[in-house]
Nucleic acid binder design. Structure first.
Length: 217
DNA sequence: AAAACGGGGGC
DNA sequence: GCCCCAGTTTT
């Protein structure tokens, strides 16, 4: 895809974005607090948005910073975040993260990819979202929506999200890195769904290489 | 590369 | 009942 076509895709997605509900992490962390971005992103993994939203609000009402989170025990965290996916594992890891951040990083969420990746339950998707949304640093956050849609557009031809991140870093202008994920997630949830995508309502279908796939409507 | 982790909600 | 969900970790 040519550079001017990528510009057009972003422009069209920005217009469509206004009609969508914001991604849940963006809603919860409007103040761009890296702590809230990190924690709510972890809560969101394999979890529906509405569940993530409720859990995040409950947790941040009690613990809106890393020190307060550290004061909670595992059972308390479990009860606050239930029923997000893997809530027991996440409660355990959130507790660990609080301790690590306080002991090793002076209570500050690190703004470095490799350091973030050392935290339990933090992979590339979460780490890059923290960098992009929490610190405003150029980072490409590839979740399943970005991965799927980038391939449908022919922007990349990849099997795994990690490959997609690498491929996008070569062709996507840096000025779009931070917002790319925010644009594609609601688009992927509402229009460019995994199965039965609404191709007839798609504002970027002219750039799509897989129009009509998977029982599209 | 593939399975496991895990509970709620949609159909 | 079966399948999906802003992935990560382990095998």
């Amino acid at each position: 895809m040519k550079a001017d076509q990528i510009d057009d895709v972003v422009k069209l997605l920005r217009e469509a974005y206004r009609g969508f509900v914001e991604p849940v992490v963006t809603q919860v962390a409007k103040d761009k607090d890296p702590y809230k971005v990190l924690i709510s992103t972890i809560l969101s993994l394999r979890t529906k948005d509405e569940t993530t939203l409720r859990a995040s609000i409950r947790l941040f009402d009690i613990a809106d910073n890393i020190y307060k989170l550290n004061e909670l025990n595992e059972d308390e965290i479990e009860r606050l975040i239930y029923p997000v996916g893997f809530y027991k594992t996440k409660a355990k890891n959130l507790k660990k993260i609080a301790r690590i951040i306080i002991e090793n990083y002076g209570g500050k969420i690190p703004d470095d990819l490799d350091e973030l990746l050392k935290l339990p339950n933090v992979g590339r998707k979460t780490a890059n979202l923290v960098l992009a949304k929490g610190f405003g640093k150029p980072a490409i956050c590839v979740d399943i929506h970005v991965h799927r849609i980038s391939n449908r557009l022919g922007l990349v031809d990849t099997k795994t999200p990690e490959e997609t991140e690498f491929a996008l870093s070569k062709i996507l202008p840096k000025k779009y890195w931070i917002e790319f994920n925010d644009l594609l997630v609601p688009f992927g949830q509402n229009i460019c769904r995994p199965i039965s995508p609404f191709c007839s309502k798609c504002i970027i279908s002219k750039y799509c290489k897989r129009k009509g796939v998977n029982k599209s409507r």
